[in-house]
């Protein structure tokens, strides 16, 4: 459970930074980028307490 949460958490961090990078390279539309970032934010705050608490 903790490992899964950590995996999702790391994916969420990637989902926060990769879409803007793709937008910068004109590989992702602005609206899609904003939606992915929002979903990633929710995923981060749901999963981070599970594994970061133990850390």
């Amino acid at each position: 459970m903790k490992k899964l949460a950590m995996l999702i958490g790391l994916a969420a961090l990637a989902g926060t930074i990769v879409p803007p990078a793709l937008f910068m390279m004109k590989q992702m539309p602005h609206t899609t980028m904003q939606i992915v970032m929002l979903v990633s934010a929710v995923a981060w705050f749901v999963t981070a307490p599970v594994w970061m608490k133990a850390e």
Partner: peptide
């Protein structure tokens, strides 16, 4: 504390955009 790494990336995201 939980938000710190995510918040930092949002700042960087703003710059990339």
């Amino acid at each position: 504390h939980l938000a710190a790494p995510w918040m930092f990336l949002v700042f960087v995201a703003c710059a990339l955009v």
